[in-house]
Structure formats: C-alpha cells, structure tokens
C-alpha cells in the first residue's frame, strides 16, 4: 500500500497547487458529456466524480435535481463552490477509489478525465467497482480516460496496455508542476471495465479519449459470476 498511498496523495497535492489556474482554463464542458447527460431522463441524484472546478456538475444539474460534486482536491472544490448554486450542489472531498457514498444512491454519474490520475491499475479497477456499487439499479455513468490514441502520444494505440507518465502543468509564473497520468490503451480500458463490476453499454474512442457508458451489474448478474 505504501507507495500507492503516497502517489495518490501526490496527485491530490498537485491539484491543490494548480487549482486556481487550472480552473481558469476549464470553462467549457466536453461535448461528449453534454450529449450523455442530455440523453438521460430526469433523476434525483447526480454525481460528478473528480469534479474539478465543477463544469460538468452544472451540466448534470440539467437532468439531476441534486448533484454531488466529489474531488480529492479541496482547492478545486473551493473553485467549484464559487461557480455552483448551493441549493442543488453538494460538495464532498473524497477518494475515487474508496467512495464515501452509500450503495445504489446515484442515478446519473460522470467520471471524466479522473481515472487516469489514479496511480495503480489496482486502484483504477477499485474505483470502477466503487462507481458500479453506488449506481442505482437504473443508474448510468459516463467514464472517460486519456488514451494512447491521442495525437500527442507517439504510442501504439493497438497495444494491450498503455503507459504511466508525468505531464507538466505550467503556472502563470513559469513554474511547472508534474501531474501523474496513466495513458490507457483502448484495449486496456476495455479490459479494466470488463474485470470490474461495471457493465459496458457503449464504448468509443473520441478526441483521443476512451469513453464508456456503463451501468452497475444487476444483482442477478453479480450473483452469477
């Protein structure tokens, strides 16, 4: 556990440092997320897992009466608080691999550009299991991660697995802060989903990211495994 714990904390601390500047550059929701949410029916509770500055929490509120916005970084949650209406948003600081949420409570979730920050395959798979656990029987989620199919990586998108890397964030003063990423091979993303408690409804690679629309496995299915 030791080194993983340190790494997970490091990623959080990186975002604590860059939160304010990062937030300025993250004004617009991703079209894939907007499309997913707009296709959903009206529900009680949404979850933006790895909410950052909350840009997708606002999109979720178009279909969810209340939205949980969860992130490991307190400073990013403060940025989110500035932008979102306290009558419908509920801010939570937490770890995506060990969710502080009851089973079956979430009806609609987005888990966007966060999974790739978890520092080991074991943790990434745990976080997918956790997402499946908190989704209600009718609930659905959109999961995305950066992939080897992106133009900026000189990588074989057909490979079985991706790679770990650090990508610098440059602050306005010129200081750089390294962020951990696991860049997924599409086949690896599908394999991790298949090994998890998520059921994949749809999978695609779009704009250099892997996307999966998922639900939790029904109890019957889980029992049969």
């Amino acid at each position: 556990m030791g080194s993983d714990d340190h790494d997970a904390r490091s990623v959080r601390e990186t975002y604590e440092t860059i939160a304010s500047h990062f937030s300025e550059t993250r004004a617009h929701p991703w079209p894939e997320v907007t499309e997913f949410v707009e296709a959903a029916t009206q529900v009680d509770l949404g979850l933006d897992l790895g909410c950052g500055n909350g840009r997708h929490a606002a999109v979720l509120h178009e279909r969810a009466d209340q939205v949980l916005a969860l992130d490991a970084s307190r400073n990013l949650l403060r940025e989110a608080r500035e932008k979102l209406d306290p009558t419908w948003v509920r801010l939570l600081q937490g770890d995506a691999a060990r969710l502080p949420l009851a089973d079956d409570c979430v009806d609609l979730a987005v888990y966007v550009a966060t999974l790739h920050h978890l520092p080991s395959r074991e943790r990434r798979r745990e976080s997918l299991d956790e997402l499946a656990r908190v989704l209600s029987p009718e609930g659905e989620a959109l999961v995305s991660a950066w992939s080897t199919a992106h133009d900026r990586f000189d990588a074989d998108a057909e490979a079985e697995t991706g790679f770990d890397t650090e990508i610098d964030w440059t602050l306005p003063g010129g200081e750089t802060v390294a962020r951990f990423y696991h860049i997924y091979a599409p086949a690896e993303f599908e394999a991790d989903l298949a090994a998890s408690d998520c059921r994949v409804i749809e999978f695609e690679v779009s704009s250099g990211n892997c996307y999966a629309r998922i639900s939790g496995k029904s109890r019957d299915e889980a029992g049969a495994l």
Binding site: H6, R9, A72, L77, Q93
Partner: peptide, 17 residues
C-alpha cells in the same frame, strides 16, 4: 467538516506528506 466541506478522504490520503 472544514469550511463547510466534509473531508471524507481516507486517513492515508488526508495527512499532508
């Protein structure tokens, strides 16, 4: 609960390194 936001990070991620 600090500054209105509950900190539900597991203890190993909560401590400052």
């Amino acid at each position: 609960i600090e500054d209105g936001i509950p900190n539900l990070l597991p203890p190993d991620m909560r401590e400052e390194s």
